[in-house]
Design a binder for these strands. Structure first.
Length: 756
DNA sequence: AGCACGCCGACT
DNA sequence: GTCGGCGTGCTC
């Protein structure tokens, strides 16, 4: 029975998976029994195809003439797949980022679900210890097979009771399957027929949550402030600015614990690389609930099941990367965004949303607290604190006995670096190694050398498809483009003269080689995308580091996030100059964050750490301020510069980008866009103050040619978001229908963070 | 993005 | 005479 309304006259507004910036209206299916709920999936005819969309509204009328409306084929859900609250977030996001709603909704759903299917309900598999397994010592296994040792430990903790897949996943994060399979082969574990015969054996117990450490006074007052807000109810945004090692996670844990005790759910977002098995484990060990993760490394089925567990409320904590912000939640009471400054929270292609900003919007709409945590907050968040939109919580001291590290600059113009290492750094390395500590060297440049040059004539190996140099990789004797993947043999002869090209400058591969020459007996690990390509390789290397088997670590950005190395006391930043003279106004902020984050790896143990930063520009004001006044001082100076220059957060930006196989169509499209933008601004000027929007460009992108395509950009800059939004709302429909747009690939980026 | 419709070259 | 090239336009 329906609710009395004749279903035939009801309309459905559907987000249809297509790049068109619009919703589509349909009639109910002919056989509909009732009006479906908002957030249900609906199968509809679209052109000549059948597609699965999401019901976002039941409008009273449509702009589309009734004769053109078609009836939906089928309603796929009677319990909505997306909550009404989430639908509202997605609708807002589509409007704010000016992206096609259908693609926004697509981005929010796991593949299986957006195809209109449900994940196969998988029989929960269980395993238990064999007698051999019971007698095997996890520690004995740890050296050769750390992953297996962790699995074994988990079974020992369960004290002979069978352990389920889900418990393994919660306790160990992803990737436990291969280890488990080998252990079954080795006869340590065996499949359990059933978790429990009814009434005989209790189901395998959740490992009971471990008690937390006692809080520092800073932590305690942060927790108290958040708890007061939780008790009060309603939206509050906190910026938790805690130095490395100050125990931000502990603060999150207390706030989450409180939410769980009240029967609610917490959503925790971390940058891609921060979602480590250690973090999953820590949450699972400490919280009396099911923790589900959502990230790109999961299979379709796992992802869909995690999504449904979030929606049904069976998971108390949802831990995800960027796209986790779109998890449907039954009873959300807290959102946490860790490392809120991290650029990977912003999607850089397609639907270019910022997970942190959407998290804040979502929390406001839900009327719940949101906690943004970082040791190096973004200038945006600090600005929001200054304007009173966020409340600041500070953890200025390390939680343990650790002293903050001392930071010094090494002048590369006075001290020659060989293989990336100055004599000064080598001397300090020797000293720290002798004291039994570990050393971490950071260099944001993989490969052997960034340049392959003929010393006779100056010829430099260039990528044929990008405006970029090729990086020399010595192990493979090949030249590789780090922007498009182009690869070729490194020729021994110059192309232009009889000379012999050779590598110039140092990458991680070369540093590794130089270290081996200087410290032949010290075990070294190199951690970058090349050395950790194999599955599980990163985990294996990190385990060697944690166990102290590795003494010197060389790595790129990968090394700076989410990993603790308590025995590292010396950190070397081999070359800090990359960000000093960039055209991107955010480069200094990123460099400062990087230096502080890397430095934070030093001396988390009781001994004071030491940081050496090698640079050719030791007098540069950025480095000077950062060293003398710390991140706070740097942030103040950077904010003053941004104010003067009119950059965010003291203005709002949107970037139009266009690329094509030839430069002309991209240029022509953006020139047209600039013209039409100016036209619109003319007609808008009287009321809305829109004349304040500056149209800058079009100009070639900083790397004009990339992967064989020419890239141009047009920047729109305004003092506030409102006029920019108004302009975009009027400009984009024009661009959508312009013929110039058909010959190029173009996109809008609202609040861009990479200006290239 | 698909997909259809549409109007011009080399083939069974 | 048709198969198919990709320009152009549309999808409730």
């Amino acid at each position: 029975m329906n609710d009395g309304r004749p279903p035939g006259s009801a309309l459905m507004r559907i987000a249809v998976p297509t790049p068109v910036r619009r919703y589509f209206d349909y009639r109910l299916p002919a056989d509909a029994q009732a009006v479906p709920p908002i957030g249900a999936r609906v199968c509809v005819p679209f052109g000549s195809r059948r597609v699965v969309g999401v019901l976002v509204d039941l409008p009273a009328s449509s702009d589309v003439p009734a004769t053109r409306l078609r009836a939906a084929h089928e309603i796929l859900d009677d319990t909505p797949l997306l909550t009404a609250e989430l639908v509202a977030v997605l609708r807002w996001a589509a409007a704010y980022y000016h992206h096609a709603p259908g693609e926004v909704f697509t981005a929010a759903m796991p593949g299986i679900l957006r195809q209109g299917r449900m994940p196969p309900a998988r029989e929960q598999a269980h395993w238990q210890l064999t007698l051999t397994g019971r007698d095997t010592c996890a520690e004995a296994l740890r050296r050769r097979a750390p992953r297996q040792a962790e699995v074994l430990e988990m079974f020992h903790r369960a004290a002979d009771a069978p352990v389920s897949e889900e418990q393994l996943a919660a306790g160990l994060g992803h990737d436990w399957r291969p280890a488990l399979r080998r252990m079954v082969q080795r006869g340590l574990l065996t499949a359990a027929t059933a978790p429990a015969a009814p009434g005989v054996q209790p189901p395998a117990p959740m490992p009971s949550p471990a008690p937390g450490p006692s809080l520092t006074t800073d932590q305690a007052s942060a927790v108290a402030a958040i708890e007061a807000a939780q008790a009060r109810g309603g939206f509050t945004a906190w910026l938790l600015h805690g130095v490395t090692g100050s125990g931000k996670t502990e603060v999150y844990l207390r706030a989450i614990r409180r939410v769980l005790d009240a029967g609610g759910q917490a959503l925790v977002l971390v940058p891609e690389i921060g979602l480590t098995p250690q973090l999953v484990q820590r949450l699972a060990h400490r919280l009396p609930t099911r923790v589900v993760t959502m990230h790109s490394g999961m299979s379709d089925g796992e992802r869909a099941r995690a999504f449904l567990a979030a929606r049904d409320g069976s998971a108390g904590v949802v831990l995800g990367t960027r796209s986790g912000v779109f998890a449907p939640l039954r009873n959300p009471q807290l959102i946490v965004v860790d490392e809120e400054h991290d650029a990977s929270l912003k999607q850089q292609d397609g639907f270019r949303y910022h997970a942190r900003d959407l998290a804040v919007f979502r929390a406001r709409q839900l009327g719940i607290p949101v906690v943004l945590g970082s040791a190096t907050p973004s200038l945006e968040s600090l600005h929001n604190v200054a304007r009173g939109r966020y409340s600041l919580l500070r953890l200025p001291r390390r939680a343990g006995a650790g002293e903050p590290p001392t930071v010094r600059l090494v002048d590369l113009r006075r001290e020659a670096a060989e293989g990336g290492l100055t004599a000064m750094l080598l001397e300090r390395m020797r000293s720290h190694l002798q004291a039994g500590a570990q050393v971490l060297l950071f260099l944001n440049r993989r490969g052997f050398a960034p340049v392959w040059m003929c010393v006779e004539c100056g010829w430099i190996a260039q990528c044929p498809r990008c405006d970029a140099r090729l990086t020399y990789h010595q192990r493979t004797m090949r030249l590789r483009c780090h922007h498009c993947g182009h690869e070729r043999r490194a020729a021994e002869r110059c192309q232009d003269c009889p000379g012999q090209p050779r590598p110039i400058g140092a990458g991680t591969e070369q540093v590794e080689q130089a270290i081996a020459a200087h410290f032949p007996d010290v075990p070294v690990a190199r951690i970058d995308r090349d050395s950790t390509r194999r599955r599980g390789e990163l985990e294996r290397q990190l385990e060697d580091i944690r166990a102290g088997r590795t003494r010197i670590l060389i790595g790129t950005q990968m090394l700076t996030k989410g990993h603790d190395f308590p025995r590292v006391t010396l950190v070397g930043v081999l070359n800090a100059d990359g960000g000093l003279f960039s055209s991107d106004f955010r480069a200094p902020e990123r460099l400062a964050q990087l230096i502080v984050q890397v430095a934070g790896r030093a001396g988390r143990a009781s001994r004071g750490g030491e940081v050496l930063v090698q640079t050719s520009f030791p007098e540069h004001p950025l480095l000077f301020t950062l060293l003398r006044e710390g991140y706070d001082g740097f942030a103040r100076a950077a904010a003053a510069e941004r104010t003067a220059a009119g950059w965010p957060p003291f203005s709002a930006l949107a970037m139009l980008r266009a690329e094509a196989a030839q430069p002309d169509p991209a240029q022509a499209f953006l020139a047209m866009a600039a013209q039409r933008a100016s036209d619109e601004l003319q007609t808008m000027a009287p009321g809305g103050g829109t004349a304040d929007v500056a149209v800058l460009g079009p100009a070639p992108a900083p790397m004009e040619r990339r992967a064989g395509r020419f890239r141009m950009q047009l920047l729109l800059q305004a003092p506030t978001r409102a006029p920019l939004q108004l302009l975009l709302a009027r400009l984009l429909p024009i661009l959508d229908t312009a013929s110039e747009g058909r010959r190029v690939r173009w996109s809008v980026d609202v609040d861009p963070i990479e200006l290239d």
